[in-house]
Design a protein around this nucleic acid. Structure first.
Length: 192
DNA sequence: GCCAACGTTGGC
DNA sequence: GCCAACGTTGGC
């Protein structure tokens, strides 16, 4: 059973269109212990994630990605020239991890935060909680499916009661562009 | 650009 | 191990 995640990134830094173009990328530069532990302990290959654009116009859910490999050493920590260099980290025991992700789909339009907020199925979602700053958060399957439905334009109006039932299984037939592109080496800010 | 909320740091 | 100061995030 796959798990579900929400991954935030500023689209000025790396957007869903960049991922669509690249096919795969290393979700690097995360410098938060809680997020690192998610990647180390809970994330699994095959998990699905919502790609969320933060600090954007509009901010919101932009598409879907899949976790290819969950807990790789983040190379930026070893790069003295990187903004994310961590001199205390060693290759034997890397402090920081990243995951490799692949493109699954881009929503025709970003589902704005404003829309997510009024969706009953998303009432408990971590990212909507005030003050939450984690760049990677777990999602319930119902939350993931609700966001995916909104992204596909299949969301019920915000006023509708119970929008969960309609969010059926749609996994498994994703238009994955199976690019064999390696993980880009460039140090990119995937938020912390 | 403001500012609330949070994580991290460092003095003690 | 407490906690104030500081830096950062991210919506608005």
């Amino acid at each position: 059973m796959p798990r579900f995640w929400l991954l935030k990134c500023e689209p000025d830094v790396y957007s869903i269109r960049d991922l669509e173009r690249d096919g795969r990328t290393g979700w690097d530069s995360v410098r938060n212990y809680q997020v690192r532990n998610f990647m180390r302990d809970e994330m699994q290959a095959g998990d699905l994630g919502v790609f969320y654009h933060s600090n954007a116009d509009p901010s919101g859910a932009a598409g879907v990605l899949r976790i290819v490999r969950p807990a790789l050493p983040d190379p930026t920590q070893f790069d003295p020239k990187s903004e994310y260099h961590d001199p205390k980290s060693t290759r034997e025991a890397p402090t920081w991890l990243m995951c490799e992700v692949e493109f699954v789909e881009r929503f025709p339009e970003v589902v704005p935060l404003e829309r997510l907020r009024v969706e009953p199925a998303l009432a408990g979602m971590l990212i909507l909680r005030k003050g939450n700053r984690l760049s990677v958060t777990p999602l319930e399957e119902t939350e993931f499916e609700a966001i995916r439905a909104l992204g596909a334009g299949r969301g019920k109006p915000a006023s509708a009661k119970s929008s969960v039932e309609s969010a059926g299984k749609s996994a498994g037939k994703s238009p994955v562009k199976s690019s064999a592109a390696p993980v880009p080496a460039g140090a990119r800010r995937k938020s912390r």
